[in-house]
Design a protein around this nucleic acid. Structure first.
Lengths: 208, 208
DNA sequence: CGTAGTCTTGACCAATTGGTCAAAGTGGCG
DNA sequence: CGCCACTTTGACCAATTGGTCAAGACTACG
């Protein structure tokens, strides 16, 4: 049996291979829709071999979620209370948009989980996620109260940033059906659009 | 066997009961995660009885999607080229937000499907959805070109409206974990926030 | 009533799926 | 080389799942 942390090189490599394959399969089919056989094939391993490295299907899923939860929240962590308010928030928007482009599978993994009621990650949502959001919303509220940005509900600001950026990863299939460009130019267009959208709202001078 | 349309009263009733139960189960677990037994229990019918009214699991899912596709696009259809541009778009935002509150299961049904690559509805996306969006974006572009609203990419405007409004239904579990209010006041807050967000962006006078 | 069509279900089936296990490899180190 | 821990897998299992079927129950209608 294996301990919590991989020790040998071969363990490290296969651990990685499995998680990579599992990310593909889980993000594309959801937890229930994914099968160990699919993951095994994708990883180039046999099913029992998978279960030599991870005790169960849920354990693989859990390991994925645990690992991703960290990097997923990084863009928000970097929001700097000491920086220029508007530029800080806009930089956060761009960071999130970049993650949607570069890590769409991770985005969909979370989306799948949350759409179905977040059965396996309620603890993480109520825990680290909530506390981080609480911290950053109070920073934003500080800026708002000081008149450095327009008066906005910081929670809904963050929700709208999440929604608009992750949308490009999570609803990619829909977007590709509507915008038929060959390349991925819509990410550039999205960058321009979202910058404008949030800049307008945050700008404090445009008060009535 | 049954024809395409229910004929007797009892058929009509059970058809309805099944679709209602199926909406619950499919929206909460995705297509693959949902089981006929769950739907049967939820509907208060036996599994073979389900299959008396629908030939297969996919047929139930298909019937749901078909039925919902119509009403789901209604808010966009109502966007009136003859109305006041800004108020038309803002009214559309509110209509979408209302649907997210009143029909969260429908929203999640679509979300589940699209996140996983829209395997069963690509035809509908490339068909009615795309043509409707094309039509309305050209209306918005007309307003934009005429200077009646700010210059914005109409496609990304619609995407951002979809994203921000549906987010309240699809990511409800996350929102509830972060905003701990007892009631559903966050829908009212969202209304205010989104109105402001999009009004600012669309307002033509705030040009540089 | 009776009977023909409609509706319902218990029993059953084949395929899939998560997981087990014992036995067979394989790598590295003295 | 020889040994031992680590790694891999074919065969197997019980549970679940979508779907079938034939027999029974119900309903409407003459």
């Amino acid at each position: 049996m294996l301990g919590k942390t991989p020790r040998t090189r071969i363990q490290k490599k296969n651990h990685e291979t499995i998680l990579e394959a599992a990310l593909d399969v889980f993000s594309g089919h959801g937890f229930r829709g994914a099968t160990l056989d699919q993951i095994a094939v994708e990883a180039g391993l046999s099913k029992p071999n998978l279960l030599y490295y991870f005790p169960s299907k849920v354990a693989i899923h859990r390991a994925l979620i645990d690992r991703l939860m960290v990097t997923w929240l990084d863009p928000l962590r970097e929001l700097d209370a000491a920086g220029d308010p508007i530029e800080e928030i806009l930089a956060y928007v761009l960071r999130k948009l970049s993650m949607a482009r570069e890590y769409p599978r991770e985005s969909r993994l979370f989306a799948n989980e949350i759409v179905q009621g977040a059965p396996n990650i309620t603890d993480k949502i109520d825990g680290e996620l909530k506390s981080l959001v609480d911290e950053k919303t109070s920073v934003i509220k500080g800026w708002s109260d000081a008149g450095r940005i327009a008066k906005v509900d910081p929670y809904h600001l963050i929700f709208s940033i999440w929604a608009t950026t992750q949308h490009y990863a999570d609803f990619d299939a829909q977007i590709r059906g509507i915008i038929v460009t060959d390349g991925e130019t819509h990410f550039d267009d999205a960058r321009v659009f979202l910058d404008r959208l949030f800049r307008q709202m945050l700008s404090p001078n445009t008060e009535k």
